[in-house]
Amino acid sequence: MQSFKSKGLIAFISALLCVSLAFVFMVNRASAHKVSHDAETLKAFNDAFMEQVILGDELFHGATMEGINMSNTGMACAMCHPFSSDVHPHEYPKFQEQMSEFATLRDMINWCIEKPNEGEIIDPDGEAMKALEAYIYWSNRGSVLDPGRH
């Protein structure tokens, strides 16, 4: 009985710990999903996403941020891709004709920055790239996944 009791207590404490850790490290721990999400939490997740979408939208339409220079021609992404059309994020990864290689969306974003825009390529895992990706995916949401399509 004793051992059962103590096992039960340990389980109880671990559960408590898990719940509190889940709140503390909500976005960092795999255990985050062990509690249900209230509306406020979901809004916080969405706000974190939309913040990136809006930053990406600005960058895509010619804004800049410290440490990057995406264009030296006055060209912005949106000048060839209004509404981010003809970006086709849902078709990556694929063989990319311009690059003559198998490429991801991030590869292609950097190709456009370097070639048509004559800018400086950005960190493929950096803040600007993630924001651009967030905007492009958001703007194309509902498109049907079709990787590899030319």
Partner: peptide, 16 residues
């Protein structure tokens, strides 16, 4: 190439 493409208008200039 646009058969699977669905697009939304931009958002950052709407004062979101």
């Amino acid at each position: 190439d646009n058969v699977n493409q669905k697009l939304s208008p931009r958002i950052s200039d709407r004062g979101w």
